[in-house]
Simulated scan of single mutants.
Amino acid sequence: METLRHIVVFIHLIGFALLFGAWAVEAVNRRYQVTRLMNWGLLIAGVAGLALAAPWGISYDLNYAKIGTKLVVLVIIGAFIGIGSARQRRNEAVPRWMFWAIGILTALNAALAVIWR
């Protein structure tokens, strides 16, 4: 069971890497737009994160405050990506503050996972 949990953690990390990596590519190229790869990264990280929040027969208690905080941050990231995508479909620009917030919140979510025990 622990091996399966590690596989899900790995998939969760892949989702984070897709989301943050796609954002970083756009930031470096100064395009300030939302991409499909960001959507995929968010989806993979979110689904794997929810799977990790389930009690897997582990011998320790889950930190529900941490899980809840990370879920709220994920929902905010998703809202910003959704709003940005909708603006792009209407040929409008994604506000720069929203674009930068996506990257900062993604990094914050990773920091919460690593630092908060």
Rank of each mutant, 00 (worst) to 15 (best):
I11T: 05
S85A: 12
W56M: 07
H6I: 10
G46N: 06
Y60L: 12
I67C: 04
A101L: 04
A93I: 11
T69Y: 04
W56Q: 11
V28G: 01
V94E: 05
T35V: 10
E92M: 13
A51W: 02
R30P: 00
V47E: 12
G103P: 07
I81W: 03
M38W: 03
I7V: 14
I76E: 01
Y64G: 10
G41P: 02
R90G: 13
G84M: 01
L112I: 14
K70H: 11
G49Y: 01
I115M: 11
A110R: 06
N39D: 11
I115K: 07
I81P: 03
G46R: 01
V28Q: 08
L74G: 08
T3Q: 15
N29P: 13
R30E: 05
Y64T: 05
F80W: 09
K66H: 14
G82Y: 08
A53P: 10
E92K: 12
L62D: 11
L42Y: 00
V34Y: 00
I115G: 14
K66G: 09
N91Q: 14
M98C: 14
R117D: 10
V94M: 00
I44M: 02
R31L: 06
E26A: 08
I102N: 03
V34P: 00
T3D: 10
E92H: 06
S59Q: 13
I83W: 15
V73I: 14
A17Q: 11
I14P: 03
A110I: 07
G57A: 04
L74V: 12
L19P: 08
G41S: 11
I115A: 14
D61S: 05
T35H: 05
L71F: 08
I11D: 06
T3V: 13
G46K: 06
L105V: 02
N29F: 03
A93Q: 08
A79G: 15
Y32Q: 05
V94G: 04
L13W: 07
T3P: 04
I76C: 05
M38H: 04
Q33C: 12
R89L: 14
W100D: 10
V73N: 01
T35Y: 01
A54R: 13
T69W: 00
G103K: 02
I67Y: 09
I115Y: 09
L37F: 08
G84D: 10
L50Y: 12
L19W: 01
I14C: 04
R89A: 10
I77R: 00
A107V: 11
I11L: 02
R87C: 11
I67K: 10
I83F: 03
R30C: 09
T69C: 14
G103M: 12
I83E: 02
A93S: 10
L43H: 03
V28S: 15
